[in-house]
Design a protein around this nucleic acid. Structure first.
Lengths: 339, 339
DNA sequence: GCCGTGGCTTGCAACGTTGCAATCGATGCT
DNA sequence: AGCATCGATTGCAACGTTGCAAGCCACGGC
């Protein structure tokens, strides 16, 4: 049973308030009183009750990061960045995983019940959209990541998916590839990412005067390795397989890579590959993966900064910040070792 | 500003207590009163204040999972399992990352300040040891994961590292390999994992009558891909390079794999590889990775169960549960495709 | 008609903390 | 000497909720 202020006060022979003053380093405490109280604190091993303190102060010092899947490396790496940024500002981050389940997303983000423990939320939605988020009853500030919501009334950070996909595809075109496939399209209305990247892919083809071949655009249910492996198998089964593939994330690309290599084909000689996210796995695969590299540190920095501004009472209209990105060119398109 | 019970009570013309009764579904409420209160609740969009509720009830419904690194796939995958198990019991998991920093570990686990928000902790320590943990002032129950602590007075779940390492090494021996290296030894007193796995590795060699060659046992600072890549480069630079390597986790193995392949050597023909953890990356690398497969679901299940028991007031002596494991044999030792 | 019973509702207090304002004694200034 | 001032300490109330026990009212039985 942890000691309370009252117990410490009794032991030190002072009032509860004075103990609180010592604990919080208020200057107006006589040195000998401070010493006496400090001794009592130490003897009882006092630890402030975070819940009571939060109730009273209205601040917990915790911010929640709500993500679809923690075991997707992109999110794991982003999480690291967010934790670092928040720690620098004196905040502790707790992470929760929704699996893109609308029920869980709603419970965590919409209802005050659980969310109210946190001063703010950084949320990467999969299932929840515009409409859901707009009339959030809770007043806890939220910063959105990712591309799901078009125009919410909320702060929002995202990469230009169309532009990035265009850049990736253009790179393949400049290598002289003619039949360029895409893996990761999503017809599902609620999953926006795939559609935006398909848009960029098509823009690049069109600009280069290349034909858009529907059968080269492979939808996948998720963005996992297994999906990439299966989609690649389908592409290889075509009468005329592609000579390059743009995968909508690195996991898809790694799955595709596995399929290609297991058929005895070579990357990039037979098929060039580009991914998206720049996860560490892609830097250590053989061949290493050419990929779109979003600036995760910047995303995290902006997200935390926007949130802290809101916590400081910033009332300015919701911001929509673009995140930087570039193309990391590695062996899967050039064949040249990168180390 | 979220509505409070009092505001709802005023609007509905009943007492605060009655509103609370409605919110908590107490049976003794007259139907028409319930309807009246419900209307007021809806109109005001009432959401219970989780902090106040926690203070009063003494339970938050949150458990914390404290891990060294979230972007290490093993931990990310374990996290998923823990979240699933806890959700089944009605608990929400929040995750925090320590980077193995003793200061952060202490702050999160030892001090009540932040920890007190949570009903319990599942903690995989890197830096904190026996001595530190023994006199924890907080009374929040803790379950430990991993091998750092030998005999704490706390519940603990771990794999038999010595036995597992022996199994992995024996597999390489049975393939007829003669010069078997090990990557991931750790001289650092505080990091126990590496030393235990070296012990198992040596046991297996000794049992087979093979010589223990010190220069084939490579220490690494961390267990990341880069460490594995560097250690492998060192091994290849030896006058007599190994024909097999046991890596103390899959990331080390993937780094080593990258180095081997980039030198034009083949796996497993020239060098066979075994890893540890069975992360998804290893199932999709080329060749796929033979590895020790700890039962992560079981670990998570036991951890959550032990914690819930303690929360229910279980006073039995601390449990020390072993986690099951086996060897997943894949292409990096057999050469045979696994799909 | 009185009392017991049971259904429903309520007031009070408390969880542990901190903001506010008041208090107290001592010091310094005129 | 008297008064303002200042430093140090304190009591009260409140954050929003729920446990406890008492209260109220109506009804039924004797």
């Amino acid at each position: 049973m942890p000691a309370t202020l009252r117990e410490v006060a009794e032991r030190a022979g002072v009032s509860v308030r004075t103990v609180s003053n010592v604990v919080n380093d208020f200057p107006q405490v006589a040195p000998e009183t401070r010493a006496k109280v400090q001794r009592a604190l130490d003897e009882l091993g006092y630890q402030p009750n975070a819940v009571a303190r939060t109730l009273r102060r209205g601040r917990s010092g915790l911010i929640a990061l709500v993500l679809p899947e923690l075991d997707v490396p992109y999110f794991a790496e982003l999480t690291r960045a967010v934790i670092e940024q928040a720690a620098a500002a004196g905040y502790t981050v707790v992470v929760d995983q929704t699996d893109g389940d609308p029920v869980r997303e709603r419970e965590l983000v919409m209802r005050g019940s659980r969310a109210a423990m946190f001063d703010g939320l950084i949320f990467n939605p999969l299932a929840l959209g515009d409409a859901d988020l707009r009339d959030r009853p809770s007043s806890t500030p939220v910063v959105l990541l990712g591309e799901r919501v078009v125009q919410g009334g909320l702060d929002h950070i995202m990469v230009d998916n169309v532009g990035a996909a265009e850049l990736a595809t253009r790179h393949l075109i400049e290598l002289g590839r003619q039949r360029i496939a895409a893996i990761g399209d999503q017809s599902d209305e609620s999953r926006r990412t795939g559609r935006l990247r398909t848009e960029g892919y098509q823009n690049a083809l069109r600009a280069a005067g290349l034909e858009i071949v529907p059968e080269l655009i492979r939808p996948t249910e998720f963005f996992h390795r297994a999906d990439g492996a299966a989609a690649m198998a389908d592409l290889l089964a075509l009468p005329e397989p592609p000579d390059a593939v743009f995968c909508y994330n690195d996991l898809l690309a790694l799955g595709a890579l596995r399929t290609i290599l297991s058929r005895g084909l070579r990357v990039p000689e037979d098929i060039a590959l580009v991914g998206f996210d720049d996860i560490e796995d892609g830097r250590y695969s053989t061949p290493s993966l050419t990929t779109i590299r979003p600036d995760k540190t910047q995303i995290a920095k902006h997200a935390v900064q926007l949130l802290l501004n809101r916590l400081d009472g910033d009332q300015s209209p919701p911001a929509e910040l673009p995140a930087d990105y570039d193309l990391a060119i590695r062996e899967s398109t050039t064949g040249k070792p990168t180390h």
